[in-house]
């Protein structure tokens, strides 16, 4: 029963959600929307588990004074303070002037932006490695990338202005993006979509059941 009931529920709800894609009638769409909304409740309950795990792991490290325990202390205090302030302020906790809003604007947002800004440096280092040409395929990749990059800035057409319009770098880069690039991208998307459907079918039919736990 520990497995049969979840498998049965998965199958019924899975088929129902597929049905709701094709049947707009309220008999199907209203319960479908309700099921999606209830997922929010399930997820919110899950956060209790997540929060408990964060506290358990980090408090244990603090108690044992493992390396970097002071940072874990900061983490735990920040977590508790944020949760407490949010709970005290209740709904509208992100309204201007609230303490939660201050935490968001002055702590969370700048830290998040700082992390995102680092991406520029990682792109540079990754691009450097991508253009190290060692094989024939890498040559093709580097050549296509060079054409696309130069063709997208004015100097591209300035360099090839004396050629017929079809041979301008801007035209060639457009063709690369619209034809081979798009074809490859769509092929990947189609394959992924089939993979998604196959995985979904396996889950609905109960063939893929390992996510339910290892105990029978």
């Amino acid at each position: 029963m520990k497995r049969e009931v979840p498998l049965f529920l998965t199958a019924v709800i899975g088929v129902f959600m597929i049905l709701s894609f094709f049947v707009p009638h309220q008999v199907v769409s209203v319960p479908g929307q309700f099921l999606q909304l209830t997922a929010v409740i399930v997820v919110s309950c899950g956060y209790v588990l997540g929060g408990a795990n964060v506290l358990r792991v980090n408090l244990d490290a603090i108690a044992k004074q493992q390396p970097g325990w002071i940072y874990k202390l900061v983490l735990v205090l920040s977590l508790l303070a944020t949760v407490a302030i949010g709970a005290i302020e209740g709904s509208g906790f992100l309204d201007p002037g609230r303490r939660s809003r201050w935490i968001y604007d002055t702590l969370y947002s700048p830290m998040s932006a700082t992390m995102f800004a680092l991406l520029a440096f990682f792109i540079a280092s990754a691009a450097f490695r991508a253009f190290r040409v060692r094989t024939v395929e890498a040559w093709w990749l580097a050549a296509a990338a060079l054409i696309v990059m130069i063709g997208r800035v004015p100097i591209g057409d300035a360099l090839t202005g004396f050629l017929p319009p079809a041979l301008h770098l801007s035209s060639i880069q457009e063709w690369i993006m619209n034809v081979p690039q798009n074809a490859a991208k769509r092929a990947i998307l189609m394959g992924a979509a089939l993979g998604v459907m196959a995985t979904g079918l396996r889950v609905i039919l109960g063939i893929e059941r390992s996510y339910l736990s290892g105990e029978d």
Binding site: V42, V43, G46, Y47, V48, L49, G50, N53, S210, Y211, L212, S213, G214, E215
Partner: peptide, 19 residues
């Protein structure tokens, strides 16, 4: 990242060790 995958991931790792 999320609590539900967290709970499932715990189960998956445990079942891997069991297997």
């Amino acid at each position: 990242t999320y609590p539900i995958p967290f709970a499932i991931a715990e189960e998956m790792v445990r079942s891997g060790y069991l297997a």
